[in-house]
Simulated assay, not measured.
Amino acid sequence: MSDARGLSDRTLVWGIAAMQVIGWGALYTPFPLLVAPMEAELGWSRVLLNAGFTAALLASGIAAVPAGRWLDRRGPRGLMSLGAAAAALLLVALALVRDPAAYIAIWVLIGLAQAACLWNSAMAVVVAEARDPTRTITAITFITGFTGTVFLPLADALIAAFGWRGALGALAALQAGAAVLTFAMLRQARVPPRGAAAPTGRPLRERIRERAFLGLALCFAAHAFIGTGLAAHLIPLLRERGWPEATVLLLAAAHGPAQVAARVLLYTLGRGVTMRAVGRFATGLVPLGMLCLALGPGSLVLTLGFVVLWAVADGLLAIVRAAGTAEILGREGYGTVTGALSAFAVLPRTVAPLVLALRWDGAGTYGPVPWLLVAVAAAVAGGFLVAARRPAG
């Protein structure tokens, strides 16, 4: 029976990677390109347009725990397939929107669909099914690292050719294909027995009091703050340093290749390293990278050092968040536990761009911003060191 057989690691790598590349590429990556044409046609403020996207982030974080609990109790078939299909329909609705209230509501529903079918849910499937979760997750992240490389130019070309509404329609068609792929692949996934209790061992309210859980929550929340904050502010921060535009864009673009290179190296090391060791190394790089950014406002060498250190750490932490959580906290109740970790990170992820903007506005320069990031980076490293002391769950 398919439930007993489950999915092979090869199927997981290619199937999950394809689902995630399309899902993130359709639901998340193109948004910055859509804002200007939507603003021009609809006449809405940029604040309103960004509020919809923020609402999706909040809804996704809030829904992460119930989505994880569903996956633990009932398996991924229904939830992920429904989420992927709903996402395609919601992109069509977004392409037709003309009312601000409907716009916000659609984004909230998109956030719920993201919680159902994107990263946390996908990693719960891998941890439950894979014979070698670490290498499988590493291979998946290697492929998904090219999401922006593929979908940013694709979305830009679609907007230029068909306008923002037509582009969303085309992305909806791609997402519909991902929904079909999701349903077809997960037909072979193992499913818990009907009526089975949630396999969490202890209630979630007890697990979130564990020192290891709190350490990981602090680490991942601080990492999310840095990631979204830099995504919004890195280019203007580098421009303020007076370098040519080509240099600024090259420094910003180097993040992706360095991420992928780190993941390739980890994959080649295979089973020779633990996620604890990888996590200690990666989280140690984060404060070093932020220090390079803070100490080198006029130094291209130090700024390049920041780019490399942060990109390597960021690339590895995507794997640590999935496989490291399983190694430290155990596989039981993985969906629920990782959903709770995502819920802890949703507020830092959402407010980071605003916090950095206020810090810039108060000083009239980006000078203090890297020092704020140094402090947050210390929380990344400290939180993981606390968590890594726990014996394997």
Rank of each mutant, 00 (worst) to 15 (best):
M38E: 03
L171R: 02
L214N: 05
W310R: 00
T325K: 02
T200D: 14
L293R: 00
A379W: 09
R73G: 09
R131K: 08
A18G: 13
W44S: 09
G75H: 06
L356F: 08
W119M: 05
L48C: 01
A258F: 15
G6K: 11
T268H: 07
L58D: 07
A86T: 14
A222S: 15
L158W: 12
L291D: 08
M275G: 13
A157R: 15
P193M: 05
R389N: 08
A40W: 00
A160H: 11
G15V: 08
G272V: 00
A17W: 00
T11M: 11
R10S: 06
A170H: 02
A56K: 03
T200R: 04
C219F: 02
R321P: 03
P297M: 13
D72C: 14
I143F: 01
V337N: 08
M80S: 13
L216V: 02
F213E: 02
R202N: 02
A64Y: 01
L186Y: 05
V150G: 03
A231F: 03
L90T: 04
V180G: 07
R280V: 05
A392W: 10
A101D: 12
G333V: 10
G256R: 11
G296F: 12
A173F: 05
A113W: 12
L317P: 01
T350F: 02
R165F: 02
L181C: 09
R135F: 06
V278A: 13
V301W: 15
G364D: 14
R263T: 04
I104Y: 02
L79I: 06
T283M: 07
R390S: 14
P368M: 10
M1V: 07
M38I: 05
S60A: 15
V150N: 03
L171K: 05
A4H: 12
A4N: 04
L82M: 12
M275L: 14
R77N: 04
L250F: 09
E41Y: 07
F162E: 14
R390W: 09
L300F: 13
